[in-house]
Nucleic acid binder design. Structure first.
Lengths: 225, 225, 225, 225
DNA sequence: AATGAATGAGTTTTCATTCAT
DNA sequence: TATGAATGAAAACTCATTCAT
């Protein structure tokens, strides 16, 4: 074998390494897959999402989905855990403790609305989970550990408000929490059909601002003694 | 026209209804397919639903789905039109016209809650539609024609209440309508995940009653002047 | 039942008869099916043709295909018999008997070309038949009876021409007949691919005229002694 | 580079070729699919061919058809490109340049006949393409690049023949090329129906020889001045 | 004669997942 | 870790044909 041949072989080997960098960055790969999966699941649902598409969006090989997550369902759960984690993080940041009751509730409502406005995919991701009886959520240890601090917080705030004479009695804190979430959630989750039926584009910034105000008003007014 | 003619007509009508074992009953076949599709779509979503399964549930040949509806999407739209039709029918039956404003709003909230409680699949059916940007709804002439009478009704009731001094000013009727729907909708749509997270089965009759009361209270209290 | 009702019923019954005339014209129905089938088979081939489409093109119920012809294959054979019948009719009309040999051959070539130009679907219909080993043609008693008079005619003309000293010897009449057909047939059957490859639209009238002249010249020149 | 390296490289090359039972050989798989597709398309046409059958003939999983070619149509195009490539290769090998005009034309006619005799599926494959208006051919960049050298070659040979006084003037080279192709093509493409109608098996070797001679004679005689 | 409902066996294509390197 | 080939089960949709009226 001549030197020329040897050189060519070496080059060809080298080329393979250079062109396909195979970066071997597990953390980045995992993150890219997760981001891609979040988009794909949000856009097409659990059943409608395609593993091929997720890998393509992430720019990595399809097999890595299985390597890192096991299967499509596990990947979906990982995405769910991620979005719940986001919500909890946001809730923890709220810092309602020091605020007077009225401002605390208002802050909570606004934060709730703003989070959904900023992360509309959260809603869509939850839909499939709810249709499936929350089987992923119930099976997740991580999510089990992620208790929301807000229900007890709401309970405390309500108590303070009642004692201060600014809130009425008889409001169930769990249901108030659900209502606060629901008033925003439904608006965002059903924007397309509501817009179609009302013949009015509810996705515009102006409409969102109007909705935000309405939700805050509704809840605040309802709490008056 | 002679009595003989009349007899023949009657007989022909009777024959169709009674004598035949109905092995060829297009109307019934269509209805069976629609019912089966509603269940399958509600259970598995648009992407997750299986045409095979729908035909099997209906007990008819799969091809008839295509014969009667064209394709899976058109069948889905037919189901959507059906559930919207149901809602509109219920709304028309409400008869809020004669009632005093307070009772009218209360009746509306309760009816809204009760309809979702009775037809939980409505929510689930709408989810896919919203994820897809309401493309079926927007393309449907039937749905275009099915305007809800409720927004203008709410508007009228609010006006009466304000004039009677029992409702506050400044409540947007469209958003109030959305809120009334949303407060119930979110509860039903997210029962599984909420139950999992609160560690509390929200699907029990007792919980539903509590939620119903909470929703009525919340809205009614918020409307006070 | 009031007279008004009766009138409406009568009218509705009558309407059914008038609007859907159900002409009950077997001959016309058969012909319409045959025409539609010829187009559909020519356009899509035997395998590609759709019975549904044929019925739709004919404007009659699909079942009538089976009623009149038995099945798709038999319908295809009926079309084949039709186009062969057309060719034989045209051949019989030629009347080469009285002509001098040169003019007779020329007339034959031109008629052959013109028939294909006028009935381009003939070629396409035969393609599937040839791919299938002519199984329909071989099974048809009608076609068996439709001998072409032309081969013996060509033989006779060649003989006359040789005796008259204007044609050379040694030309096989069967192969000459095949050549005359083939020189036109190939041009028409392969117009699309030839056009694509030569980058030149051979389907134009000018190109057809040029081809016709070329074919006549080629054969006539080749027969010179 | 050390001898050790050389040994490793040699071994790796060897491994790929000899040791492995080749359970993963993309090149071979592609080729097997292409061969199987060629047979299936030739036998049953584009519409009549079955992807299942192609995969079965190739002995590979059906999905690989989609993996390697995209869909049935693209596979068909790949087959077309293959058979055209074959023709062009044969044409390039002809080497008519040095021959005297008469021998050159004769060689061309014989090669044309022999190629079709050796590859009868070429005809059948083209039929569907022509029925479809050559949509695959027109969309293929590969085929666009595969110009036949023969038309200009024929043109040149004709010129030489005329100058040498052995060919007559006025023969259009494109049409001569089409005629040479058509005289053989039609014979092979319509052998079954011609045989059925003449009651004479044209597929026998003797008949083929007779046809070959006839075609050569016809063209050569027609070119005499 | 004519219609439209109904059927069952396909047919292309898709998809989650595993294998081999 | 990363890749692309390979698989098998199913999915939507098609189609020739028959049934019931």
């Amino acid at each position: 074998m001549s030197t020329v041949w040897l050189e060519m072989l070496k080059r060809s080997v080298k080329r393979q390494k250079d062109i396909k960098p195979q970066r071997r960055d597990p953390v980045a790969t995992r993150r890219k897959l997760l981001t891609a999966a979040r988009r794909e699941f949000a856009q097409n649902g659990l059943a409608g999402a395609r593993v091929d598409e997720i890998a393509a969006r992430a720019g990595v090989n399809k097999q890595l989905v299985y390597h890192y997550f096991g299967d499509k369902d596990a990947l979906y759960l990982a995405v769910l855990e991620w979005v719940y984690e986001e919500i909890r993080t946001q809730e923890r940041k709220l810092n309602l403790e020091g605020l007077p009751p009225e401002r605390a509730i208002k802050a909570l409502i606004e934060a709730s609305f703003d989070h959904l406005a900023a992360h509309p995919d959260f809603i869509v991701l939850l839909n499939d989970e709810n249709r499936g009886g929350a089987r992923h959520v119930r099976g997740s240890r991580k999510l089990e550990a992620m208790h929301s601090p807000l229900v007890s917080m709401v309970s405390k705030i309500l108590g303070e408000g009642i004692r201060a004479g600014i809130f009425r009695r008889g409001v169930n804190p769990v249901h108030l929490y659900i209502s606060i979430a629901g008033l925003s959630y439904f608006f965002f989750s059903n924007t397309p059909t509501l817009s179609a039926i009302f013949g009015r584009d509810l996705s515009s910034p102006a409409e969102k601002r109007a909705r935000r105000k309405h939700v805050v008003d509704l809840v605040m007014q309802s709490l008056r003694p």
